[in-house]
């Protein structure tokens, strides 16, 4: 923590009267640390160790397999469609919800959260019931010759469903916290709705948006349950990377699923890295800003004269 010195001292002195004995503190840290490392960190290391257990050459051979390559391509394609779709939705939903008052808002919020509380498997099933051969639109789609289930469109739809709330959930509180003062100010200066959005709203929520995008992307690329139900597991055609991991797991080479899984673990690491960076950056920006503002004014209240234009009466 980069607290200014004064604040740090104050914190520690107030802690003294309300602190656990040293041995309690350090055993709690010990247990928590051990738990976190064994239960959360070792599994990550294990992925890479297992992936390289048969050496670099083998590792890259697994990854270069045409079926793996096609799984990677499919996963990228699915993410490239579902993430932007949910970004557009998230921006629209958060604009309506954060900037306006209307009836039924809390119901709308509940609906937006729904996909979080539905088992991915059940969501996959829903799409089968909609677009499957015996589904609601099955005969129609069959007539038109469009295949959704056991094909890429189904995978995309299921992925959009399970990642549906991510961007909106990040943006709604971010926009609510900003309020609409900046937008109103832009409008008093003559800005149109789109100008206001592009120049004022979007820059002020860009980090929240990026945060939502990386979480949405991580889930989109890693989704297993819903995609598994609708994909049909056609090797080289409808296998995404996580499905490819499962397929390799059921084959003879124990290192192969880990090699493919290591890509997804890497994705998780990158996601966490960006996430940590964003959090650190916001914290630092706030801190630096406060410090700069302090430097100019000096001690608040003491040097206020310096802060004033010359023609104010002395």
């Amino acid at each position: 923590m980069n607290l200014p010195k004064k604040q740090r001292e104050r914190t520690s002195s107030s802690q003294r009267s309300t602190q656990e004995p040293g041995w309690v503190k350090w055993s709690l840290i010990g247990i928590a640390g051990l738990f976190a490392v064994v239960f959360l960190f070792l599994p990550l290391i294990n992925v890479f160790v297992q992936a390289f257990s048969k050496g670099w050459v083998h590792y890259f051979k697994v990854l270069a397999d045409p079926d793996t390559i096609s799984a990677i391509k499919l996963t990228l394609l699915v993410a490239a469609i579902s993430v932007p779709a949910n970004v557009i939705f998230g921006v629209a939903a958060s604009w309506a919800i954060a900037k306006f008052e209307f009836r039924g808002k809390s119901l709308l919020l509940t609906f937006i959260d729904l996909p979080f509380s539905i088992s991915p498997v059940v969501s996959g099933l829903m799409f089968i019931l909609l677009f499957g051969v015996n589904g609601l639109f099955g005969p129609l789609l069959d007539h038109l010759g469009i295949k959704i289930i056991f094909a890429v469109p189904g995978i995309v739809l299921a992925t959009i469903f399970v990642t549906f709330p991510f961007v909106a959930r990040e943006l709604i509180p971010a926009m609510q916290a900003e309020g609409s003062d900046q937008e109103q100010a832009a409008m008093t200066m003559g800005a149109s709705g789109w100008q206001t959005f592009w120049y004022v709203t979007l820059p002020s929520i860009k980090w929240g948006l990026l945060y939502g995008v990386i979480l949405c992307n991580a889930r989109a690329m890693g989704e297993f349950g819903a995609v598994s139900v609708v994909s049909g597991h056609i090797t080289g055609l409808t296998d995404t990377v996580p499905l490819r991991v499962e397929k390799l797991y059921n084959e003879f080479d124990p290192a192969a699923p880990f090699a493919v899984a290591s890509l997804l673990a890497l994705l998780a690491l990158v996601t966490l890295g960006i996430k940590t960076y964003l959090e650190w950056k916001t914290e630092r920006d706030e801190h630096q800003g406060q410090q700069l503002a302090r430097e100019v004014v000096g001690e608040p209240g003491k040097n206020f004269a310096r802060d004033l234009p010359a023609h104010s009466p002395k």
Partner: peptide, 13 residues
């Protein structure tokens, strides 16, 4: 980490 890691990988490892 468990949030960012695809569940298939979690199960596997």
């Amino acid at each position: 980490f468990p949030f960012a890691l695809p569940t298939a990988v979690a199960g596997l490892t």
